[in-house]
Design a protein around this nucleic acid. Structure first.
Lengths: 144, 144
DNA sequence: GTATGTGCAAATCATTTGCATTCTC
DNA sequence: GAGAATGCAAATGATTTGCACATAC
């Protein structure tokens, strides 16, 4: 299996774009973190590692990563988007508590299968899916 | 089955809030439109009907509608949130084309069942779910 | 060498908020 | 009558963009 960087290099070449050290740093950092991130968190992480990459570059890189299949939007929280890397991972779904905002992840093979079969029914080429289930977690449902 | 307005009135009473004609207009308009909407679209619709309701009121009403179970966030498009009313409807899922942005809706009972069963596994009280599948629609996949 | 990418700071745009006024209960 | 809700306009905060300089191919 190709590395994320390799996938991105190929994508960039195919599109006639250019690869840069900044973009590769962004990719490495994204794949070094366990899972979700937002732009500001990523920016801080990069700064802490002494990488001088601007927010603008991060914002400009993200659509490329999505288009190349490395990344997907996960959910909006506190008014801004959160992303998750999806290359080389089992997809997971999110279970969100509406009261405390808590997030539980779960892997659900059957969701992925259903997503694919629905896509086929509409003659789509399915590349991803996102599932969010909400309700009240054990702690919060007790408080109601 | 109670009307949306009745559900909201009860919610408001239970929370010790107040009902207002503005809120009821918002609810009527949301349930009069077939399905998805965004704040600006709703605002324009209301204006066209000569209802003088400010954007601020719409923004302040939406969280109440979500909490009362009438509405849910559907997806982010063009940088802003889109909502869908969910009371008295079969839930539907979305199939999105990554190339042209096209949206197909589908009802998928099995998704709802899986959502519920996953929630139970984590001892959540499940109140809703959101599924988005993406890929390339028949027209766009041909162009690649 | 040329087109693309980067960083910065300013601009944009959705959403939120302070405040004076109006309205529900 | 008291606490809530509304409308307006200003504030906020995430994201985008113009531009001058740097860099990949």
């Amino acid at each position: 299996m190709k590395s994320e960087i390799a996938v991105f290099r190929e994508f960039v070449r195919r599109k006639g774009l250019r690869n840069t050290p900044e973009r590769e740093q962004v990719i490495r950092m994204i794949f070094a973190t366990h899972e979700h991130f937002d732009v500001d968190g990523l920016y801080s992480l990069l700064r802490r590692r002494k990488e001088k990459i601007s927010r603008a570059t991060i914002y400009r890189t993200i659509p490329l990563l999505i288009e190349s299949g490395l990344l997907q939007e996960a959910y909006v929280e506190n008014g801004h988007m959160h992303y998750e890397h999806i290359y080389g991972h089992e997809r997971h779904c999110h279970l969100r508590c509406l009261a405390c905002g808590g997030l539980v992840e779960f892997a659900e093979q059957s969701m992925a299968e259903r997503a694919r079969s629905v896509g086929e029914r509409y003659e789509f080429v399915v590349t991803g899916h996102r599932v969010e289930v909400y309700g009240y977690c054990p702690k919060c449902k007790a408080h109601r």
